[in-house]
Amino acid sequence: MASGANANMNAVRETMDVLLEISRLLNTGLDMESLSICVRLCEQGINPEALSLVIKELRKASDSLKASDNSTN
């Protein structure tokens, strides 16, 4: 049981490594944690198109916030 869970953990880790590599290749700018969240969301059947949109918007928002912070400062 424990070894099975271990093997499972290994498989998951390996998968995540592969995905991270692909992500790097594609230059998506996602770190490990964001990627794992995204993968989990995708696994739950979330529409990837919508998710990518959200991520882009979030980045944009954070940038603009930073920018406005800069400008006000």
């Binding site: 700018g29 996602l30 995708c42 696994e43 979330i46 990837p48 198109e49």
Partner: peptide, 9 residues
């Protein structure tokens, strides 16, 4: 789904 997400990003 994951691949698509990565592609769109």
């Amino acid at each position: 789904s994951v691949l698509y997400l990565l592609l769109s990003l």
